[in-house]
């Protein structure tokens, strides 16, 4: 997936960070570590389980960082968009796919923006809904409520579109 490339990772980090600033600012100081953890293990089920360790406090929980969920959601959205873009522009080269995604997201640098002026698009409504669905689906895998997942999804989409 493109999101696993250096460039893609940078984008994931960038978007996630701005969402975390909004939704879970208290986790910001360990953002980088959580990002590293996620790239090591992105599976919501396996990293860490509560054993009944008689020597610990007996009140152990396994909690997931909002940051981790946001990263997972952003990555899911990017992956979704990549596949969608590939469907549309199958013939085009990889370089163009990347560019299209960045364009789609409206995140091109200002000097690039003029060049692709007419292409610069905001998301269409049904596309947005699809993105939201993908993001929520991923978030729920981490065991958070649908409600909370939806809020996070909205925050991410907000960041994506307004930026």
């Amino acid at each position: 997936m493109w999101s696993n490339t250096m460039e893609g990772k940078k984008l994931v980090s960038e978007i996630s960070k701005s969402v975390v600033i909004e939704t879970a600012p208290e986790e910001l100081d360990i953002f980088d570590e959580l990002l590293d953890d996620y790239s090591e293990d992105s599976n919501p089920g396996t990293n860490g389980h509560v054993r009944d360790n008689p020597l610990s406090s007996g009140l152990d929980e396994r909690i997931v960082a909002i940051t981790t969920i946001v990263i997972a959601m952003v990555k899911a959205i990017l992956d979704f968009l990549t596949t969608e873009s590939i469907k549309v522009v199958e013939a085009e080269g990889a370089e163009i796919v990347k560019k299209r995604i960045r364009d789609l997201l409206g995140r091109n640098k200002k000097n690039d923006r003029e060049l692709s002026g007419e292409e610069k698009s905001t998301f269409e409504k049904d596309q947005l809904n699809q993105i939201k669905k993908v993001a929520i689906k991923r978030a729920v895998q981490f065991g958070i409520s649908r409600d909370k997942a939806e809020k996070l999804a909205l925050a991410i989409i907000g960041t994506l579109t307004l930026d």
Partner: peptide, 26 residues
Amino acid sequence: TSDSTGAQAFGLPGRYSICFGKGSRL
């Protein structure tokens, strides 16, 4: 590795430690 929020006191007298699961930071 563990994501647990648990902690455990251990160690020999005079050199006690408390270990925290990584989840504690969260």
